[in-house]
C-alpha cells in the first residue's frame, strides 16, 4: 500500500492572482515578489485536528442557532450540502467546515457593517460542522441577500456564503465563497471575476438540488468542495527527514 506523500502542487492558474486591480482593495494588499515554492515538510502535511467536542450539532443550523426560543431566522429556507473531497476524489472525513453570510436582506451582523438593510434579531450568520466519515456536510440557513459594497459606486455582491475548510494538512487551508445557480450578479462581480478561469468560477456555483429539498419546508443547493490531494509515494522520496 503506497503511503501518502507531499501535496500536489497548487494550480495557481485556477486561483485568483494576488493583484487584481478591478478589486481595488487587492492593489495595496498583494505581494509583489514571487512566492518561494516549498516541497511539503511535516509542517505543511500536518494541520489541526478537530473533534465532536469542538462543535455542537446545533452549530450547523443557522435558522435556529442564534434564534430566540420559539422563533427562527427570516428568509428563504435552504439546505446547503455536499461533500469535501481531495483531488484524488477521496472523501475528507471529520474535517471542520465553517460558514458565514449576510442575512436575507444582505446585512451582516458585524460592527463594521452599516448597510441600511435591517439586522434580523434571530439570525447570527455563522455556522460550523464536521464532515462525516464520507466527507459529507450540510448546513440549514436562509438564502443570503445581495448587498452593495464600495469598489466602484455601483458594485453588488451576488448572494454568497463564505466557507472555510481545513482538510488534514495546513497546506490545504482554504477560504472560498459559494454562489447560487442563475444569479445574474455573478458575472458582474469584481471579486468573482478575480478568478481568471471560467470553469473555475463555475465550480463555485451551487446547483439547485430538488432531490435534497424537504417538500413544503426547505429548498436545497448542492456544493461540493475539493481540497488538494497528496501524492502516493510509489518510490520513497525521503519526505521524512534524513
Amino acid at each position: 500500500m503506497p503511503k501518502d506523500g507531499e501535496f500536489y502542487q497548487r494550480d495557481r492558474g485556477r486561483h485568483p492572482p494576488a493583484l487584481t486591480p478591478d478589486y481595488k482593495t487587492s492593489v495595496a494588499r498583494s505581494p509583489r515578489y514571487p512566492l518561494i515554492s516549498l516541497q511539503s515538510s511535516v509542517s505543511e502535511i500536518t494541520g489541526p485536528v478537530f473533534g465532536h467536542g469542538d462543535v455542537d450539532p446545533l452549530d450547523r443550523d443557522m435558522i435556529y442557532n442564534y434564534a430566540r426560543p420559539g422563533e427562527s431566522a427570516i428568509g428563504e429556507r435552504i439546505i446547503l450540502h455536499g461533500r469535501v473531497l481531495d483531488e484524488n476524489a477521496r472523501p475528507v472525513p471529520h474535517t471542520l467546515v465553517e460558514a458565514w453570510q449576510a442575512n436575507a436582506g444582505g446585512r451582516y451582523r458585524h460592527k463594521k457593517d452599516t448597510y441600511l438593510a435591517p439586522i434580523d434579531p434571530n439570525f447570527g450568520g455563522c455556522g460550523r460542522t464536521l464532515t462525516d466519515e464520507h466527507g459529507y456536510y450540510f448546513f440549514r440557513t436562509v438564502k443570503p441577500g445581495a448587498y452593495p459594497w464600495r469598489n466602484t459606486v455601483n458594485n453588488w455582491r451576488p448572494a454568497h456564503i463564505h466557507l472555510s475548510i481545513f482538510g488534514t494538512g495546513f497546506a490545504q487551508r482554504l477560504i472560498t465563497q459559494c454562489y447560487f445557480e442563475g444569479d445574474p450578479l455573478i458575472a458582474r462581480c469584481p471579486i468573482v471575476q478575480t478568478i481568471p478561469d471560467p470553469d473555475a468560477i463555475d465550480s463555485l456555483v451551487a446547483v439547485l438540488d430538488m432531490n435534497a429539498t424537504i417538500p413544503l419546508d426547505t429548498i436545497a443547493y448542492r456544493f461540493d468542495i475539493v481540497l488538494r490531494g497528496r501524492r502516493s509515494t510509489l518510490f520513497e522520496n525521503r519526505l521524512e527527514g534524513n
Binding site: P16, S26, D86, H110, K112, V192
Partner: peptide
C-alpha cells in the same frame, strides 16, 4: 483527478 476549489477573499466580515 478533481481540481482544487478556487480561493476567494475572506472579505471584511471574516
Amino acid at each position: 483527478y478533481l481540481r482544487e476549489t478556487p480561493s476567494q477573499t475572506a472579505g471584511p466580515y471574516v
